[in-house]
Write a protein that binds this DNA or RNA. Sequence first.
RNA 1: GGCGAAGUAGCUCAGCUGGUUAGAGCGGUGGAAUCAUAAUCCAUAGGUCGGGGGUUCAAGUCCCUCCUUCGCUACCA
Length: 522
Amino acid sequence: MSQPFYITTAIAYPNGKPHIGHAYEAIATDAIARFQRLQGRDVRFVTGTDEHGLKMVQTARAAGRDTLEFADEMSSYFRDMCDKLNISYTAFMRTSDERHHKASQALWNAMQERGDLYLDRYEGWYSVRDEAFYDESELVEGEGDVKLSPQGTPVEWTVEETWFFRLSRYQDALLALYAQNPEFIQPESRRNEVLRFVEGGLRDLSVSRTSFDWGVKVPGSPDHVMYVWVDALTTYMSGIGYPDTDGEFARFWPADVHIIGKDIVRFHAVYWPAFLMSAGLPLPKRVFGHGFLLSRGEKMSKSLGNVVDPMELADLFGVDALRYFFLREVSFGQDGSYSAEAIVTRVNADLANSFGNLAQRTLSLIFKNCDGYLPAIRGHAAEDSALFDLVGSVVATEIPAHFENLAMSQALESWMKAVFACNAYIDAQAPWALKKSDPERMETVLATLFICIAQLALAAQPIIPEAATKLLDQMGVPEAVRNFAQIGSHWYSPLAESDYRLEQPKGLFPRLELAPEDGGNP
RNA sequence: GGCGAAGUAGCUCAGCUGGUUAGAGCGGUGGAAUCAUAAUCCAUAGGUCGGGGGUUCAAGUCCCUCCUUCGCUACCA
């Protein structure tokens, strides 16, 4: 039985439509999930929407809508985005789902039994927008003597009864966790921040609210709903069946990695493991905080008017192109910058000119000179072996290693290195010239390239699933060998000896053009 | 204020535990080729590796200091 692999994105707060950051996270996570499938792993991939909290209630009310009905609509945009971007999730979990409520309550009960929850009174400055209490000292002065949170959101003095989680109990256990599992929080810079935060001491955490009721009811405390983060994080469990602890949950928990944005590292690297320890559940193996995408180096904001709809980008440039750009151009874990020119330049250079053209010229030569039948290999020259060695080690070793490290941009850098080698090889061997001087040698050269291109297409499949699949289809590469373990095996000769015949090859990586309005303003 | 990250060719960035002439992609320039999506290949670009000081036989790579940008965090009148 194949090994399980469980990965998640953060679940999105859908009080607005998906923005490019949501798309980026989904794409990166999907690439990892697809890679693991091609490694033969049995993958579960959970994403979804985090719909509770006062903000949703207020946003819905402002639009004159019923909260749940509003949440239904907003959540659907996120699901649509995932579908459009070829995100291969296995569950789209909504926190408003009944099953999810049961899961959250089960987790709560487990923490309760451990004695980690207690009722107390909380007085303080509360920000509705941030859903958080602040200390007097943290506040800043706004215009007209108004007090604002450190994030600049309005606060009001609030007194409420609230359940607390004994986070303070877990300081040592968390520090031990970080020490024993250096890879628990990545990248390194995030890990340091968390370490210092926890070393500085932990206060108990307020984990319920009474000021609104749009949330998961606290068991035995009907006036309380859970703090959004408690139930939001629980989607990672409910997405694979919890509170049913047999079946999927037993097989896939804990997560191999939670992919999240760098802004919510604390919730995932401090609160979440503490909750799980309290509930007596195994902890995720890794939490990875990726960076943000900046539009031409600037943060996206409505006031700057540079908010980009990822769906539009996908329509404009294509899903595979967008996926490729994000994962190639941005070093995973760091912030990245994007612009229409950057996308066009990168995609044209790598996909259209280098790889797409390589595939096209090779398949065209076979189609025209071999009548579409895959040519036989008649002994290897040194150059052939050199190319096989290079492509083979890139595909079998370098790319998988980079993917395991969640270094997709480096995986693609290796991939391009192999593509360049193929282009250099085809130019040096010049099969179009061999056609007259040495037809048998021409066939060997074309067969060599065919094999290498198939390997490269497979390796790129997690990043550009649609085009890579079409290319492998065009080439007649059997399903059975479309994985990292088999693509390096000897499948070519049987295929060449079969009556498989290439159709007229069609380009799969069209050159992009920059719309005039995107060309200007630097 | 504390802690941390970053500052390397026009642009985007690689450079692990210090060691031959500091690398890649894109762009620019000069060739070659014409099978292919006017795509490809080859050659090339002489950059005080933010400034200064130090350790060392040897530093982009360690130490100190200063400047700039960013992140986390604390706090004060």
